[in-house]
């Protein structure tokens, strides 16, 4: 992704998103190959690495030429390997390009600090978490391939495969290879129809918006694809809580201000405002009581968590009808 302009002697790739890490490594290697197509690439894992190997690879070669040393999993490096890497990165040879790959977190922090102090180029691979970021990622994928994608198509693709970035990237590559012209929603549906990833929040949104049949269907779908009943119910509670709080706030205030006052994200405020139509405070109150009852039943007070959730959906929709 972030292609360095030329070979950099020391690159630190860090962050939890595996796909982006792989791409950063590939970009670093490609950057070396631009100037030296014959460069030798050593792709190593710090786990189980024998001591001295990196030092050996980093020492000047008889035949000249650049050597690229990629060391993955440096977070789990044994202490002696970590020390060895620190020595090498403090004084790498002239023709050595060192790429360290770290999955984020505080493990092996001293090595990271040493790399930063040695002037490493840091590539940060953050988790792509929000839906809007994922849509932007999809658009970037198509753009990089020189293709256009309709916004609705990008959203549909994220709906279908959004939970795993690698899967999403592969799907983009497949669509680029298999289709021509602008990728629109119909194309995405031809390849990925019927495959929608459902989270508790989607079920909650459907229930809160009074789409009863759809909420029940999504609930079954979510449970069938591995969602646990407890977080699904927590999503119901969260949705209703937000609804009640936003409902009590001024309707005319800017969403950002309301969000700050209530400790919510602005998009939550906007969504809740849209959902408020059709609800009365008493309705929301009744729905909250129903969800609390469901929580008790899910956690051992009842015999069937799935029934408790379906009942909660039914009660939420019925409570909305009160308004």
């Amino acid at each position: 992704m972030t292609a360095a302009p030329g070979p950099v002697p020391l690159t630190l790739v860090t962050g939890p998103e595996a796909l982006l890490r792989d791409r950063a490594v590939a970009a670093a290697v490609a950057a070396v190959r631009v100037t030296d197509p014959e460069a030798e690439v050593h792709d190593l894992s710090a786990v189980g690495l024998e001591p001295g190997r990196v030092t050996g690879l980093a020492s000047p070669s008889l035949f000249g030429g650049t050597s690229v040393i990629v060391v993955r999993d440096v977070a789990d490096a044994a202490e002696e390997i970590s020390d060895e890497l620190k020595t090498v990165l403090a004084d790498p040879g002239d023709d050595v390009v060192l790429v360290l790959v770290h999955p984020g977190g505080v493990k092996g922090k001293s090595l990271l600090d040493a790399a930063r102090a040695a002037g490493a180029v840091v590539v940060d691979c953050k988790v792509v978490k929000w839906e809007s970021d994922k849509v932007a990622f999809v658009q970037g994928e198509f753009k990089a391939a020189g293709r256009r994608v309709a916004p609705a198509a990008a959203v549909a693709l994220v709906d279908a495969l959004g939970s795993d970035l690698r899967e999403l990237a592969n799907a983009c590559a497949q669509l680029v290879a298999d289709t021509d012209g602008t990728v629109d929603r119909a194309v995405v549906e031809r390849y990925h129809a019927g495959r929608i990833e459902v989270t508790g929040f989607k079920v909650a949104d459907a229930a809160v918006e009074g789409r009863y049949e759809e909420a029940l269907r999504l609930l079954r779908h979510a449970l069938a694809t591995g969602s646990d009943p407890v977080p699904v119910n927590a999503a119901f509670a969260m949705g209703l809580r937000t609804l009640a709080k936003v409902g009590g706030a001024s309707r005319t205030a800017r969403p950002d201000d309301v969000a700050r006052d209530l400790g919510l994200a602005p998009f939550q405020v906007k969504k809740a405002r849209g959902q408020l139509a059709g609800w009365s405070p008493d309705g929301v109150a009744a729905a909250i009581v129903a969800v609390a009852r469901a929580d008790e039943q899910i956690k051992g007070g009842g015999t069937d968590p799935v029934y408790a959730l379906e009942r909660a959906v039914t009660d939420i929709v019925a409570a909305r009808a009160l308004g």
Binding site: A234, V291, A292, D295, K299
Partner: peptide, 12 residues
């Protein structure tokens, strides 16, 4: 006591 999320129980 039955393990319901405390916030949800108090809200109810």
């Amino acid at each position: 006591g039955a393990n319901v999320a405390p916030l949800l129980a108090v809200e109810a």
